[in-house]
Amino acid sequence: NQASVVANTLIPINTALTLVMMRSEVVTPVGIPAEDIPRLVSMTVNRAVPLGTTLMPDMVKGYA
């Protein structure tokens, strides 16, 4: 099973992502692959992402 990116904290809308905000976890449904974490750093989220939420491609500006 592939690990996905999961919010390690509440990420407010329009926040630039940092490494400490994200962790990898095997979850269903599958979200952004964990190997993309380095690429996500400094990208911003377009909605509030609660703790434990899987990051989906449409949640990160410029990812999809």
Rank of each mutant, 00 (worst) to 15 (best):
A16T: 15
M22Y: 02
P29H: 04
M59D: 13
G62E: 09
T54C: 04
P50L: 11
L40W: 02
T15V: 11
V26T: 11
L19E: 05
I32N: 01
G52R: 05
E35P: 07
T44Y: 11
N46G: 07
T53D: 14
P38D: 08
P50N: 10
T53S: 14
M21C: 04
R47M: 14
S24E: 15
P33V: 08
D58T: 09
S42P: 00
R39Q: 07
A48L: 14
P50A: 11
N8G: 08
L51G: 13
P38C: 06
L17E: 02
I37K: 14
R47P: 03
V20G: 15
R39P: 01
I37M: 14
V20F: 13
T44P: 08
A48Q: 11
T53I: 12
N1H: 11
Y63C: 05
S4L: 01
A48D: 15
L10C: 15
K61I: 15
R23T: 11
T18M: 09
I13Q: 09
A16S: 14
V26E: 15
P50V: 07
R39N: 05
A48E: 12
N1K: 04
M43R: 06
L17R: 00
T44F: 07
R23Q: 05
V41G: 01
S24L: 07
T9E: 13
A7W: 01
P29D: 10
M59N: 05
A3I: 08
N8P: 02
I13W: 06
M22K: 00
A7R: 02
S24M: 07
V49S: 02
N1Y: 15
Y63M: 06
V49P: 02
M43S: 04
M43L: 15
T9W: 09
P57F: 05
T18F: 03
N1R: 03
I32G: 00
D58N: 12
R39L: 11
V27I: 14
L17H: 00
A34Y: 14
E35I: 13
Q2A: 12
L40H: 00
K61N: 14
T44V: 12
N14C: 14
N46R: 08
V45N: 02
T15W: 06
V27E: 02
S42H: 12
V20S: 10
